[in-house]
Design a protein around this nucleic acid. Structure first.
Lengths: 126, 126
DNA sequence: CGGTATCCGAGCTGATACTG
DNA sequence: CAGTATCAGCTCGGATACCG
């Protein structure tokens, strides 16, 4: 028994696949992790997330917003201020993202080691 | 308090980020989900995963293999047979992947609805 | 069956520069 | 501070055809 029904991400044209493709992205995971702590400003995310450009940050946030995971809150103040926060729907992703980042923290070294061993000249045999 | 240390995926050049970028990929998540049930053949994965091409499947499997998450087992038989399975390291990903796909199954409809509502002609005001 | 090589268009990505 | 527009480079990803 497979245990997989029609709502599984294995099917190309189902909502589940859409959802997977939405979050299974290099920047999306990190941005969601940054948002999971509460409302954050654009500049704060830039500072927090190493290597991301303003363009990619905005692009990622816009996509998450259009998919109902993030809410954008602009303030009509003298120094322009915009805060981003997870919607209730987006908040349900906090747990999965947390599990993912915890895995990355715990096994990142092992992955690096495996990658390193794989790319060795192979002068070793036993 | 941030609660984030030097091993967090927010830093651009840390193993944690490497690990996130490894699995935060459209096909990688689905392929890992397919592998989480046990050893599978190349053709079986093609059948299982809707929309994937042989090229992308092989490419994804090779990358996972080089990072120590997947093991490739070729059999020297008359009808060529190759099986792929998760390594012990890769098996530690089963849980995170499961959480992710479960979220996708549970919230895929909501994401689709939000996307649909977002792209409406906006003839509504309240 | 499993895998590779090639072609080629489409989309992503990162600077850079400009607007409000 | 927040965001947009544009350009150049690159990778992605699929189709096809061929090899073991």
């Amino acid at each position: 028994m497979s245990g997989f029904g029609p709502g599984d991400p294995f099917l190309a044209d189902c909502p589940a696949r859409l959802a997977v493709e939405l979050i299974a992205d290099k920047w999306t995971v990190v941005v969601l992790a940054g948002l999971s702590r509460g409302p954050v400003r654009h500049g704060e995310l830039i500072e927090l997330i190493g290597g991301i450009s303003r363009k990619m940050l905005t692009q990622t946030l816009r996509r998450l917003e259009s998919h109902g995971l993030v809410r954008r809150r602009p303030y009509a103040e003298a120094p322009p201020r915009v805060e981003y926060e997870l919607t209730p729907l987006g908040a349900t992703l906090t747990e999965p993202i947390h599990v993912l980042t915890e895995w990355a923290k715990a096994n990142g070294d092992a992955v690096l080691a495996a990658l390193d061993a794989d790319s060795e000249p192979a002068a070793q045999h036993g």
